[in-house]
Design a protein around this nucleic acid. Structure first.
Length: 833
DNA sequence: GCAGCCTTGTTTTTT
DNA sequence: ACAAGGCTGC
């Protein structure tokens, strides 16, 4: 062991050191919340490099870009301290970004176009709808998003459309199978790959292609996977395929923080790691450096109610700290108001900065009241929401244009922007176009180029289509250098896949169309206003940690592009008319222009950090990035987020609102077959929330909460009962008379609980939920009754109440989900059994 | 082809 | 209560 290696290990506890120095062979690090996991694994990587392992043989996989960024950063800092000057770094990637790169590299092995586009959820939904249409299924029979999640679920279990079809016996599954088949075909035609495909296809590639597997095993001789409790089956297979030859696999995680089961995460991957690798070393990190003794005690007590876990005894040397405040409020307005009041006290009296406080909740819908209260008290805040920015229409539109440039086969993107800004190409025209394309086996793009030849397409629309195509082609010629000259084909489709100099198939000319008119494209370029100079900084900013493919990974069609992406984007925004479109009036338009400008700025940042980065690289990155990754922590603002979004973060002050049965655990977890398992996941969610807190924790709940327009009595969360009493200080505001004029209650009137509400002893004021009145059940249909509907099929009654002589029945249908029906209209039959 | 109305649904969402 | 998406009328 070298001197440097010793220095690297400095300050680590014995278990942390055990983990950091175990290099060869399987290793499972069970890292409790706040146990210094990231610190341990970054030291481990540095230790490996210090001991002579080439960094490019090391692969670290995380789940979020944020986690990857942090790990990259912290590892880089350590490696910089090393005497070796390393030119190439460790590969730090998310599962999805790793797979995207591998699939581009080995595209031909999987029969993929290297210029495939990554389809996001909204693209997927469009494809599903088209697939359902193709399969002859109306959107009434099945909800598209349900079908999508079924497909996604299948893919995450490595079940192909064919395999799915073979095992589908139920009526519903057979329909899904048909859609799945059509969906896959459409994805292929569009040269699209969805999020699940990235994992699926990589796993299949590693499984079925020994040569590729061997190459990658040799490249990634040491593998580290973070948050292993959140891996799904596909990810499990990828990890195992990569590690099966050398078995140098280190996985870290915490079964108690597995909160993505609903997304296909398989807890048994981590629970049974030792069965898959019998000689695995297991290290427990149980010392917590984050929270007070009280907070930790509460968290431990709560989570000990779970059966499916690996026992850990979290402990800390930190101070005991104040008790957890359990705030019982009359309703959500009071809850928000009282909470903000207390946060203000922390800020004003204890000089705790706003950035050190977070409010967490189970569902996004709870933000509104909180926002109101924060705004009224002039407390700065920021909300973390998944797709706030990239989900915006105008942002997606710009991205769609870019995608169309790299991948003209992407009909989904084309349909998205062909009439943005309005070009008088309406739905009917697109349908015509689409029909023609199908008939002649063309892409929509190709159909646009020969729009004049399409019967029934209005002159105006045809002209607009032709101009649209010319516009895209001109951009493509300019922005994708190798496409120029190749794109003007006379070759029949069979010869589209010309072999390029790189030895890979060049798909850049796959959109070959005999009617492509270079003159028209050139003409368009000439007319278009020249874009002003864009001062993109080139050079600098390249980090050592950048791995080998990030520098070289370019689809064959994109090599050597030197135009910064930001500049392309500006061109597009101007020449497409999207900018003009917004020059009209109104604040909305201004906001949209600002968003597009922001997008350009973010792209400029990409250009700076990735000199030589291609448009393709940019698009790959941008689709795999969420807003959470852009969360600014320098803002002096209270952070609002869901409990899910909170994982991995910590704050001195944490408030969890809505601690009520029905919210945590969530209503949807009740009933159903896997209810018990789901309750455990909900408990883990609460555990994650509690363990985010360093010093102060507030748990609040409301006796009445307005949800979906109805005020409902709420029982305290069962999880509150699982927290030892001596950890809690209960403040019950429902039994206190508030002074007149106090905000939070209209007119300052004192609070009168509605009928049916009983206020019990302070601490656990139990609100009884309103009992189902006898009148609201029906002799034939009651909760739990299995029913059949002519259109929606089989379902189970989840609720029934009387409405003006009729009955309103809520039924959860197998295919199409929850529906509310009026008994007199819906022809419901009971199903026995 | 587009605007306003009405129906619909409303857990979480690393990618 | 409220937003988003689909549908109808201009």
């Amino acid at each position: 062991m070298s001197v440097d290696a010793n220095e690297i290990l400095q300050g680590l506890t014995t278990p942390q050191r055990d983990a950091a120095t175990h290099i060869d062979g399987p290793l499972l690090v069970l890292a409790g919340a706040g146990s210094g996991k990231t610190r341990t694994i970054t030291r481990r990587i540095a230790y490996m490099v210090a001991n002579g392992i080439p960094p490019w043989n090391i692969l670290a996989v995380t789940f979020t870009n944020k986690a990857a960024g942090e790990m990259r950063h912290r590892t880089m800092e350590l490696l910089h301290a090393l005497p070796q000057r390393l030119s190439r770094g460790v590969t730090v990637a998310t599962f999805h970004s790793l797979c995207a790169r591998l699939l581009r590299e080995y595209a031909t092995v999987m029969g993929l176009a290297p210029n495939f586009n990554i389809m996001d959820t909204s693209d997927q939904l469009k494809v599903v709808k088209q697939a359902m249409e193709k399969a002859g299924l109306s959107p009434d029979s099945m909800k598209p998003d349900r079908v999508l999640s079924a497909i996604s679920d299948a893919k995450s279990k490595l079940k192909s459309a064919e395999a799915f079809s073979k095992t589908a016996t139920m009526f519903n599954d057979r329909n899904i199978a048909r859609v799945y088949m059509a969906y896959e075909q459409l994805m292929n035609e569009n040269k699209g790959v969805d999020f699940d495909d990235l994992l699926f296809k990589t796993a299949v590639m590693l499984r079925d292609h020994a040569d590729v597997r061997k190459q990658l095993q040799d490249r990634f001789r040491y593998i580290l996977i973070d948050e292993y409790q959140d891996t799904n089956h596909a990810q499990f297979v990828i990890a195992h395929m990569l590690a099966m030859s050398h078995k140098n696999i280190c996985v870290t995680g915490d079964p108690d923080q597995s909160i993505y089961g609903w997304r296909g995460a398989n807890l048994s991957n981590i629970m049974e790691f030792e069965q898959f690798f019998p000689n695995a070393r297991v290290v427990l990190l149980e010392q917590n450096y984050r929270s007070t003794k009280i907070i930790l005690k509460a968290a431990s007590a709560l989570i000990s109610n779970n059966i499916a876990r690996k026992n850990k005894d979290l402990w800390t040397d930190n101070e005991t700290g104040p008790k957890i405040l359990h705030l019982v409020c009359a309703d959500e307005h009071q809850e928000a108001h009282e909470l903000v009041k207390r946060l203000k006290e922390f800020h004003d009296q204890q000089q705790i900065g706003w950035e050190n406080m977070a409010i967490m909740y189970r569902i996004n819908a709870m933000t509104r009241v909180l926002e109101d209260a924060l705004m009224k008290s002039s407390v700065p805040y920021q909300i973390i929401r998944g797709t706030e920015f990239y989900g915006r229409k105008e942002v997606k539109d710009v991205i769609a244009y870019l995608r169309l440039i790299t991948t003209p086969e992407d009909n989904i993107s084309l349909e998205r922007v062909i009439n943005v800004p309005p070009r008088s190409i309406g739905q009917a025209s697109v349908a015509r176009l689409s029909g023609y394309a199908n008939e002649h086996h063309l892409t929509l793009m190709a159909a646009c180029r020969r729009a004049d030849a399409i019967d029934g397409l209005p002159k105006r629309a045809a002209e607009a289509c032709r101009r649209f195509a010319a516009m895209i082609d001109s951009w493509r010629n300019r922005f994708v250098p190798s496409a120029a000259g190749v794109t003007i084909p006379t070759a029949p489709p069979e010869e589209e896949f010309a072999e390029s100099e790189s030895g890979m198939f060049d798909f850049s000319s796959a959109d070959a169309d005999p009617l492509f008119d270079p003159a028209l494209a050139a003409d368009f370029s000439a007319q278009a206003p020249e874009v002003s100079d864009f001062d993109a900084e080139n050079g600098g900013g390249q980090s050592d940690m950048k791995d080998e493919y990030q520098q070289s990974a370019t689809a064959p069609g994109n090599r050597g592009s030197s135009i910064p992406v930001a500049e392309m984007m500006e061109t597009i925004i101007e020449q497409s008319g999207m900018k003009l479109m917004d020059s009209g009036s109104g604040e909305d338009d201004e906001q949209r222009n600002a968003n597009m400008l922001e997008l350009v700025n973010v792209a400029a940042e990409f250009d700076r950090q990735n000199p030589g980065g291609t448009l393709q690289d940019y698009l790959t990155q941008v689709t795999l990035v969420s807003d959470t990754d852009r969360m600014k922590d320098q803002n002096a603002a209270v952070t609002l987020m869901t409990l899910h979004a909170a994982k991995g973060l910590e704050f001195p002050v944490v408030a969890m609102v809505g601690m009520e049965d029905g919210l945590i655990p969530h209503q949807r977890m009740f009933g159903g077959n896997a209810a018990e398992m789901n309750i455990e996941e909900e408990r883990r969610l609460a555990f994650v929330g509690i363990t985010r807190a360093m010093k102060h924790l507030i748990l609040s709940r409301a006796a009445y909460r307005t949800m979906m327009g109805r005020s409902e009595a709420k029982n305290p969360s069962r999880f509150l009962d699982e927290i030892p009493d001596d950890c809690l200080e209960v403040v019950d505001l429902t039994v206190l008379q508030r002074p007149a004029g106090s905000p939070g209650f209209r007119d300052g009137a004192s609070y009168h609980p509605p009928r049916g509400y009983t206020s019990a002893a302070p601490g656990h004021a139990a609100a009884r939920s309103v009992q189902e009145s006898p009148a609201s059940s029906n002799t034939r249909f009651r909760r739990g009754t299995l029913v059949r509907h002519a259109k929606f099929g089989i379902g189970r009654v989840e609720g029934i109440d009387e409405v003006g002589g009729d009955y309103r029945v809520e039924v959860n249908f197998q295919g199409s989900g929850r529906r509310t029906l009026m008994l007199s209209f819906a022809k419901l039959e009971t199903v026995d059994g």
